[in-house]
Computed example of a mutant assay.
Amino acid sequence: MSISVSIIEDDQNIVDQLITIFGASSLCRIQGIAVNGEAAQQLIVSHPTDVFLVDLGLPDADGVDLVEQIKRHDPHAHILVLSTFGDAKHITRSIAAGARGYLLKDEINNDLIKKIVALHNGGSPLSPAVGRVIVDSLSNQTPGSVCQVPEANVAEMYQLSPNEVVTFKHLCAGLPITTIAAMMCISPHTVNQYLRHLYRKLNVHSRAMAVAKAQKIGFNYEH
């Protein structure tokens, strides 16, 4: 089954380019196209879609607001930003709003199909320049000045259940399994079940890796 893709973009040249790219592939199909904010809002609520391609620079809407609206309407939708903006502010706002990929428009080519498939399968395609901005932003932070991300955002980002979020916090705080079980009023066996699900969703394989992931994303696990 092909991946359904909705396009939110006001530049007709970019739209035509995307139509050509998708028309040459059997892996993706265009579900809908919106060229302004009003049409985008209608598209979001009326056309269930696997992947949304969102332009940030619409004439009558903030693309980041549309990203947030997509995630509220369908938390499972995948969002890929296509933008001319490559600065840290636009990138971080988009990711915080729910985008899981960010590509610059001058890099749109036939490889876009592969990147959409990767996004649909859980990946986070980024333009090299965007990746550098993110790394530079992180490296410029002073020690201990990690931006704290709310639990709800972490839960949405990795599709964690409430119990998995609590387990994540206790695990990163260094508590042993038996203590976690006692605090959550469950058995150690159940804690281990939560941990297996947690490790799989975070794509880690140990407590140390989970702590490193928490620090990387700014998850506040202090009690």
Rank of each mutant, 00 (worst) to 15 (best):
C28M: 08
S26I: 07
T167Q: 01
K89D: 14
T167G: 08
A39S: 15
I116P: 07
S187E: 06
T178Y: 15
E164L: 05
G174D: 04
C172E: 07
I8K: 09
N140S: 15
L56I: 10
Y102W: 05
A34H: 13
Q17K: 09
P176Y: 11
D16L: 06
Q148N: 00
G131P: 15
R93K: 04
T142N: 09
C185L: 14
V81T: 02
H170A: 01
S6D: 05
L66W: 07
H47G: 00
V211Y: 03
A210S: 08
N203P: 02
H189L: 03
E68H: 15
V146H: 13
G32N: 08
R196N: 02
Q42C: 08
S26Y: 07
A39L: 11
V81R: 00
D16W: 00
C172N: 08
I70C: 00
I14N: 07
M157W: 11
L58E: 12
I180Y: 00
A97F: 13
N13L: 05
R207P: 00
L202K: 05
E156A: 15
E222L: 10
C172A: 13
V146Q: 10
A97R: 07
A77P: 04
K105F: 04
Y158I: 02
L138N: 09
H120K: 14
I108W: 02
R29N: 13
A152L: 05
A61W: 03
V67G: 08
M184I: 02
T49Y: 13
I7V: 15
A61E: 13
S127R: 10
S124Q: 07
D106W: 00
P125K: 10
L82S: 10
D74K: 15
Q31C: 08
L27P: 02
H78W: 07
